[in-house]
Design a protein around this nucleic acid. Sequence first.
DNA 1: ATCGGTTTTGACAACCATTTTCATTTTGCA
DNA 2: TGCAAAATGAAAATGGTTGTCAAAACCGAT
Lengths: 129, 129
Amino acid sequence: MTTRRDAVHDTLRQSEGFRSAQDVYAEMRQHGAKIGLTTVYRALQALADGGHVDVLRTDDGESVYRACATGEHHHHLVCRRCGRTVEVEGPAVERWAETVGTEHGFTEITHTVEVFGTCSSCSRTSLAG
Amino acid sequence: MTTRRDAVHDTLRQSEGFRSAQDVYAEMRQHGAKIGLTTVYRALQALADGGHVDVLRTDDGESVYRACATGEHHHHLVCRRCGRTVEVEGPAVERWAETVGTEHGFTEITHTVEVFGTCSSCSRTSLAG
DNA sequence: ATCGGTTTTGACAACCATTTTCATTTTGCA
DNA sequence: TGCAAAATGAAAATGGTTGTCAAAACCGAT
């Protein structure tokens, strides 16, 4: 039997961008999956804790998740319109964060970096329509 | 009469780091201010909209605010223990975000960058205690 | 198969920051 | 002074997320 966690993970993998727990739940139900909202939340958390999916917060405080191609540290370029996401790297940013933290006497430095924009197909749409 | 918004702004100015709406409210009440929670929320939003204070989200989804020295675009180095915050600039990061977005055909690029760490006095404390 | 014991599940209730509502108070201004 | 518009705040509503707990699924041992 496919564990629910895998089912959640699969659902996420089929998505282009970041999806909320509620989104994932709704989609799974629509496809006939028998699963509860609580379980989706738990699965998502477990996946996130294990580093199998990335999490970020939308402007209105919702947590959104995404199954990324790599487990390596990376950042995201997210279309603010359709949510399409590109994984990007930025060694320069990593170094900058580390440096700036150290310079001020901080230790155990971590950072969050997200880039937002309007993707080409969305800006086309807005010009046309 | 000092408008409530100014009172909220002042309270924020006296803080070292980022404070939540509830924090600000509690502190104002403690100092004898007659103000409602709703008003604090509204004032904080207005201040944020006007670019007079910076906002960010804690890991648990709470919005926290800070009256920053400058209205210019800048980022923060925040102590994850005590919340002490240093304002930092990173021209390299700005350029990187812009470049990476443009390369992928995105327009109207914005970004969020926050650096977290443990400040020197907090790491001393943890070693001692 | 069947019996414990452990883990997972999920309906529902509880949480809690934030928003909305709306009646009251304050303000701005003629 | 009067009156419309804006600000206020107590209380209720909202909504994503988490806690509770009993039922269901799982698993190794008999």
